[in-house]
Design a protein around this nucleic acid. Structure first.
Lengths: 402, 402
DNA sequence: ACGAATAAGTCAAGCGATTTGACTTAATAA
DNA sequence: TTATTAAGTCAAATCGCTTGACTTATTCGT
C-alpha cells in the first residue's frame, strides 16, 4: 500500500448511485405527498416520464409501491396513482433507557405492529444484552406469526440510547450510562440477530420519528427538542439528520442557560429528571406517568414552579436554536404523556422575537410533537427505514457513510 | 398545468450529475491534498483508474489541472502528479460593509490578483450601486490587463454583507443596513456586469475563506465565529456551508449570553462595535486599526476590560457552539488586524469542558483564523469558486439549489 | 546483470441508467 | 364528431463508469 501520507477525498459517484438515489426520491415523494401518478412523479422530481416509469415498475416488483384506482381529473388519459406499500419493509426499534428497554416493530409507513418492554439491570450491560436479545427474539416471533415472508424484509435494528457518546470525562451529575457505552452492544446485537444495527441518541431518534410521522413530516430544516429524563435536540438540517463530527450534535441539555440569578445546564432545570427530583417520583415506577399527571391536573404548586423555571430556560433554548439553526420550525417532544407538555409549551409562549420572516411563515415557530413514552422507540425503528429509503448525499456516493 | 396541490419532492439525478460531481471531487481532492497522481485519485475517491483518467484528461483540456514532474516512489511505473492550475478560474469578491466597500479578484487557488476599496454612502443604495459598479469595472480592467483570455474564466461575483437578511422587525440597536437589503442589488450587479452574482452574510463569507485557504482547510465540520463590526458564525456542516431555511443560520451575535448580572446579545459585549464604543474610535476612520492597535499594545485599561467581558461571553458562545454543532474545531476570525485577536483568544482559554473526545483529537478545539480587514472580501470571492467547483449534494442533482 | 514483482496508466468492449422522440391510449371540451 | 390534452409505452440513442486485458517503467532479489 502507498499510504505514507493518508489522502483525504470525498467519494465519487456512478450510475448505480444515481439509480439508488432516484428510487429513494420516488419513495420520499410518495411518503410526503401520498399517492402520485408517474407523470406527477416525473414533474416533481425532474426526471423523465420514462425514467420514472422504469423506477416505479422496479419498485412495484419489489413490493414497495402499488397502484391505486384510476383517477380521472380532466382531459387526457386517466392517471394511475401509486402509493407506498406498508408491508414493503419492516424495521425494529430498540430503546435502551435508564430504567426500561422497549422494542417495537414498525412497517414502511410507520404502523406499529408489535411491541414489548423489559426492565434492564442498569449496571450490567452483559446481562442487559441477554435481556434485550430475549426481548428482540420474542417480539420477532410474535411479529413473524402470520407473516411468512416478512423476515426478509426487515431493514434492520435501530437502537436509541441517551447520549452523549464517546465522552471521556463525565460530569457526575449526569447519568451517562457509561457501562453501556463501553460495551460493544451493537456488535453483540448484530451477531445475536443477524440484522444490521445502527445507533443514535434518543433526541435524534425522536427527531427521526417526528420527521417520518409527526410534526416535522416533509420538513427539511427542523430542530426537535426532546424532553426525557435528560434533554437533547435532534437536528434536521438540509433534509438530513445531522449528528456532527463525533455524533454528539444537538446536546442542548448541556448548554448553559439561566437568568439573572445563575447559569446552569438546561437539563438541570427543564428535564423530567429535575421534575421527578422535585416531586419525589421514582423514574423506575411503572405508574410514574399516572402519578405525575394527577399532580399536574391537581394543580400541584411544585409542578407549577417547575413549569415556570423550565419554560424560562426553554424559551432561551428555543431562541438560541432558532438563531443558530434558522429552522422552519422548532418541535418540542417528550416521553411524558398527558397534560404536562401542553402546559409547558403554553408557558413557553410568547417566544422571543426571531430573525426568521414572519409574513411568509406558514408553519408555527414552536410546535408540540409527540408526547408518548414510545416516541423514542418509534424513532429508533424509523432509523433503519430512513437509512434504507430516504434520499441523502451519502446514499448517492460509491462509499457510503462519509 | 396540474398544480391544484403543489407536489413537493427532492430532485432526481442522472449521469450528467455524476460526471459533474466526480469532476468536483477530483478538484477538491487536489485542493485538499496538493498534487496527486491519477492512481492516488482513484484510490482516494473510490472511482476506477479509467474513470479518473478520463476526468483528469478533461480537466487538463479545460486548463483546470496540469501535470507535474514524474515521481519515482518505489517499485512500479513512476506516477504523474496533477495539481490545480491557479489560472484555471477567477472570481470576484465584493464586500459591502457599513462604511467601506471592498472588491477583490482571486484565482482558483486563492491568490489575490487585484483589489480596491471605496467609501459607500450608507443610506443610498442606488448611488452605492453606481459606486460599486464603477469599482468593479475598474478592478476588472486592471485584472484583465495582460490576461487576454481570463475574462471568460471568471466564475462570478460573490457578495458579502452583514446579515441577517429578510428580517422584517428590526432591533434598532442593530444596524441592519435595511435600505441595502430592500434594494435589488444582486439583479443590478448582474445586469451591470454580465456575471453570476451570489450573496452571503459576512460570517459565512469568512467561513468560506477559512475553508478554502485558512484554518478550516479540508475540514468538514467547523464553526467559524467572525468578529467584525457585528458578530456572526459561518457554519460548515457535513462538508458544506449551512445557511438554514431562510439564509440566516449562525447569527450567534443575536444569541443571549451573559453571566449572573445580565443577559445580553453576544454582539453587545463582544463586537468591534462595542469596543469602538468604549474607546471612542470612529469606524469610518481609515486609521482605526492603527489607533486601536496602539491602545492594545499600550495596555489601555478600557481595552483590557473589554477583552475580559468579551472573552467571558465568547467562552460561553464557544461552549454553546461546540455543544450544539459538535464540530471538529471552532475558529475565531476577525476583520481587525494586529494584536487584539491573539489577546482575546488567550483570554478565552481555558475553554469549558467539552463533550467531544479529547484523546483522539488532533485539531485544537479553538483556533485563531484570519485577522485581516480583507478576510470577508476574500471569502466573498471564494463563494463563486465554491459553487462552481466544490462537491455538494445539490450539484449532483438535476435541479440545482434545493 | 537479469528476471520477477509491482505499480501507473491505456485500450476497447461492456453495461447500467437516463434521455429522446415517436407512438398509443383514453379522456374531456367544443 | 372531432380536436385537444395528458398518461404512459416502445425502442433506439447516449452518456459515463466499469471491466479485464495489456503496455510501460521502475525496483527488488538473486
Amino acid at each position: 500500500m502507498n499510504e505514507q501520507r493518508s489522502i483525504r477525498a470525498k467519494s465519487g459517484a456512478n450510475q448505480e448511485g444515481t439509480g439508488a438515489h432516484n428510487r429513494r426520491v420516488i419513495i420520499d415523494a410518495l411518503r410526503v405527498n401520498g399517492a402520485l401518478s408517474r407523470a406527477d412523479l416525473a414533474r416533481a422530481t425532474g426526471l423523465t416520464k420514462q425514467a420514472v416509469s422504469n423506477l416505479v415498475e422496479t419498485l412495484e416488483n419489489e413490493g414497495l409501491v402499488a397502484s391505486e384506482e384510476l383517477v380521472r381529473k380532466g382531459r387526457g388519459q386517466p392517471s394511475t396513482p401509486y402509493r407506498l406499500v406498508a408491508e414493503g419493509a419492516y424495521s425494529i426499534g430498540l430503546q435502551i433507557d435508564r430504567h426500561v428497554s422497549r422494542v417495537i416493530v414498525v412497517d414502511l409507513v410507520g404502523n406499529i405492529l408489535a411491541r414489548a418492554t423489559a426492565k434492564v439491570p442498569p449496571r450490567s450491560p452483559e446481562e442487559g444484552a441477554e435481556v434485550v436479545l430475549d426481548l428482540l427474539a420474542g417480539v420477532r416471533t410474535e411479529f413473524a406469526a402470520g407473516r411468512p415472508d416478512a423476515e426478509a424484509r426487515i431493514a434492520g435494528i435501530g437502537v436509541a440510547m441517551p447520549g452523549p457518546f464517546g465522552v471521556e470525562i463525565a460530569d457526575d451529575s449526569l447519568w451517562l450510562m457509561q457501562a453501556w457505552q463501553s460495551f460493544p452492544l451493537l456488535d453483540r446485537l448484530a451477531a445475536g440477530t443477524g440484522l444490521a444495527v445502527s445507533l443514535q441518541n434518543d433526541a435524534a431518534a425522536c427527531a427521526t420519528a417526528e420527521r417520518m410521522l409527526g410534526a416535522a413530516h416533509g420538513l427539511d430544516h427542523a430542530v426537535c427538542i426532546y424532553i426525557g429524563y435528560g434533554i437533547g435536540a435532534g437536528l434536521i438540517l438540509g433534509g438530513e439528520l445531522y449528528s456532527g463530527a463525533h455524533g454528539n450534535a444537538g446536546e442542548i441539555g448541556m448548554v448553559l442557560f439561566g437568568g439573572p440569578d445563575r447559569l446552569t445546564p438546561l437539563e438541570h432545570r427543564a428535564s423530567i429528571a429535575s421534575l421527578y427530583g422535585v416531586l419525589g417520583i421514582d423514574p423506575a415506577d411503572p405508574g410514574q406517568f399516572d402519578k405525575l399527571d394527577a399532580l399536574v391536573l391537581g394543580g400541584d404548586r411544585r409542578v407549577g414552579e417547575w413549569i415556570a423555571r423550565a419554560a424560562h430556560d426553554l424559551r432561551l433554548a428555543v431562541h438560541t436554536a432558532e438563531t443558530l439553526f434558522d429552522p422552519q420550525t422548532v418541535i418540542l417532544s417528550s416521553g411524558v404523556p398527558g397534560s404536562l407538555m401542553p402546559r409547558l409549551i403554553a408557558a413557553i409562549e410568547p417566544l422571543r422575537p426571531s430573525l426568521s420572516p414572519t409574513a411568509s411563515r406558514t408553519i408555527p415557530r414552536l410546535r408540540l410533537g409527540m408526547t408518548d413514552p414510545w416516541a423514542v422507540a418509534i424513532g429508533a425503528a424509523a432509523d433503519p427505514i430512513r437509512r434504507a429509503f430516504d434520499p441523502s448525499f451519502s446514499a448517492i456516493l460509491k462509499r457510503q457513510g462519509e
